[in-house]
Design a protein around this nucleic acid. Structure first.
Lengths: 151, 151
DNA sequence: TATTTAGTTCTGTTGTTCCCGAACTAAATA
DNA sequence: TATTTAGTTCGGGAACAACAGAACTAAATA
């Protein structure tokens, strides 16, 4: 793979990552910015560089960056004698990812348990199915916790 | 908790579940239908019952139900001598849930690995961070597989 | 054959999201 | 003090999504 192909592939990856993030509720422009900060060789971009590179307006950039910051997906650094912010991706570690999965499962399991507790017939089809799922999820959560302790 | 309170709480839960599902990209009406099929004591609803219960148009119901079917979130049964479809929730078992988590992690890890492989400097900050995350994710995937084999 | 039933499809309305351009601001610089 | 820099905020338009209503259809029934 020559240099040109490599760059082309990187641009394609930015698109892939962008679409991937869109599915998770991140707006298109923000997803591409995050992708760019992840894949490009240059790993710190100023506001203006982002505006130019992505060909977006300053307002779009401003909103997208604030959004990404709130999600803790990016961060910025400044350098003495330079007013510019240098944005870079902020990687959430594996532990945080696991924490996210765990939380989601916990929330769902809690809801399922409440659904069960509110059933008139606690042996109804749905109640039984939910019990099984809730149980499985709770067990899975303990596995996640073991994993977290190990790493 | 008396009967009235119980029903009230069930209705509230439908809302909670609906909002929860909206976050996952399911449209509002579809989310409430799914919630209803999950929490109510009556566990099979006809098209018309859903229209009436949710106070939505037939077209909304038709679209929402088709959507939920495509996602394999609901299914319907028919009974001999009765043209109506009886819709009910279709629970994905724990294994399927785990499979979903696994797939997501796998996709992300694959993307990360490609990002790394396309870096000019494979020891750059991002490259190193990504390597660590990818490794952690791959390890986590094996844990998931062990869990799947166990249940 | 005419009507009813159980939905589906089409068209239009409303609301929301995404983004842009322009005006604005606060700090640094000339 | 005037200008430049580095953004933010505001107002608006285009595109899209969610839903309703009405017209339609295919199968069953009278």
């Amino acid at each position: 793979m020559n240099e040109h192909e490599r760059i082309t592939r990187q641009k394609e990856l930015i698109e892939t990552i962008g679409r991937n993030l869109e599915k998770q509720g991140i707006q298109p422009v923000a997803g591409r910015i995050l992708g760019m900060l992840m894949v490009m060789d240059k790993e710190e971009y100023t506001f203006d560089e982002i505006v130019e590179e992505m060909k977006i307006s300053k307002s779009s950039a401003s909103n997208a960056l604030r959004n990404l910051e709130l999600r803790e997906a990016i961060e910025y650094v400044t350098y003495p004698g330079d007013r510019k912010r240098y944005f870079r991706i902020s990687f959430s570690d594996v532990n945080k990812l696991i924490e996210g999965v765990k939380k989601k499962f916990q929330t769902d399991a809690d809801i399922f348990d409440e659904v069960i507790s509110l059933k008139k017939d606690s042996n109804s089809k749905n109640a039984c199915a939910l019990k099984a799922i809730s149980k499985g999820m709770r067990y899975f959560i303990t596995i996640l916790e073991n994993f977290q302790n190990k790493i």
